[in-house]
Amino acid sequence: MKKLSYVILCFSAVLLSSSVFAKDAVNASDPEITQVTSQGDSVPPYAVSEQLVVEGEKLYKRRCGGCHSLDNNRIGPRHRGVYGRKAGAVVDFRYSKALRNLDVIWTDQTLNEWLVNPTAFARGTSMGFRLKKAEERNAIIEYLKSLSSAPDSSANAQ
């Protein structure tokens, strides 16, 4: 049993990492990498593609808006600032045990893996929603990224 699930894990890890590479390839070929101001002017934002962010915002509303908002907890936790943050960190949201115990920072790669198959990424999570299309994941992640500030560059700026 254990061996089998290990094999399945490795196999899905390979699958997942290949889809991550595919995503990077899309990013690299994007001609328009621009800076977008997110919150206040003292906090440097992540570099994002403005075009992808606009697309991501529309998709976010349709695909995620049934359960999530940026500033209010609903079926799922609020999302503003989730990019770059530890999983399960919105204090007034009641996460599943799976997400509370998930030792992961939300990045391009971890968000991508999560959206491909959340119950495989964190068995026992209450989010079952999968986003099949890589372009949609890519745009939505870019949108979430535009709403966070980059911790490293803000630390350097001090």
């Binding site: 359960c67 198959n117 999968r130």
Partner: peptide, 18 residues
């Protein structure tokens, strides 16, 4: 409309995990 559209999408997206 936003909620209903979101809910239709939500159900369709969670079926494979159920």
């Amino acid at each position: 409309l936003d909620l209903e559209r979101g809910a239709a999408n939500a159900y369709l997206g969670l079926i494979p995990s159920l």
